[in-house]
């Protein structure tokens, strides 16, 4: 991190700066993008990777404890509805949003321990239960309700996760977060 060269490109961040409520223990990369007008709350020990995009133009964003938002993931994308709601996107605790996934705004709720796979898309107003797995490139329609422990495959197939490894998964994620905190230079002051 010593050789810091400045890009000739204009800064990626555009639009208004949202009011933020950060816990003191979060890790947020310098190049994450936070835009919008409504408040963005990130609870303790969550990690936001570089170039992740959090957009609160359509309502409040809440990210729970020990969540990981990977690069290029979008929270609060303005979907087809485009309406403004009280809580645009709510992530529970231990939620992982992987590379390039998009979660549309509009009372969308992701339950505790759910993994949103690479390039998946969650429609506006969808409610995903606890400990679900959305495999890569899955699409969840707007307003859909997915029960707890469901595995959704990208070809539309579903099944219930009966392995009972939710506790172990949470423990593994906590270890991953410990490593990420040392690797990603955090700069929450930039967004305050």
């Amino acid at each position: 991190m010593s050789s810091k060269r400045h890009s000739i490109l204009p800064p990626v961040s555009s639009g208004p700066k949202p009011p933020v409520h950060f816990s003191s223990s979060i890790t947020i990369a310098d190049s994450a993008v936070l835009t919008g007008t409504h408040p963005i709350a990130i609870h303790s020990e969550s990690v936001v990777h570089p170039r992740a995009r959090l957009d609160s133009l359509a309502g409040r964003l809440t990210v729970g404890r020990r969540c990981v938002v990977h690069e290029r993931a979008t929270l609060g994308a303005i979907g087809t509805s485009g309406r403004i709601t009280e809580a645009a996107v709510t992530l529970g605790d231990y939620v992982v949003v992987e590379v390039g996934a998009a979660i549309e705004a509009g009372e969308t709720v992701i339950g505790e321990g759910t993994v949103v796979g690479v390039g998946a898309r969650v429609g506006a107003g969808a409610v995903i239960g606890k400990h679900c797995t959305l495999t890569p490139h899955t699409e969840i329609a707007a307003g859909e309700v997915v029960p707890d422990f469901t595995v959704v495959f990208s070809n539309g197939m579903r099944r219930t996760d009966k392995r009972g490894v939710a506790e172990l998964k949470n423990k593994g994620l906590a270890r991953q977060i410990d490593v990420l905190r040392r690797m990603i230079p955090s700069n929450p002051a930039k967004f305050a």
């Binding site: 690069e71 290029r72 590379v99 390039g100 593994g172 270890r175 991953q176 410990d178 490593v179």
Partner: peptide, 16 residues
């Protein structure tokens, strides 16, 4: 496209 190193638990410790 996006290239990222894989991570896993190795002997109880998470590592990339």
């Amino acid at each position: 496209c996006c290239l990222r190193p894989p991570g896993r638990l190795y002997k109880g410790v998470f590592t990339y």
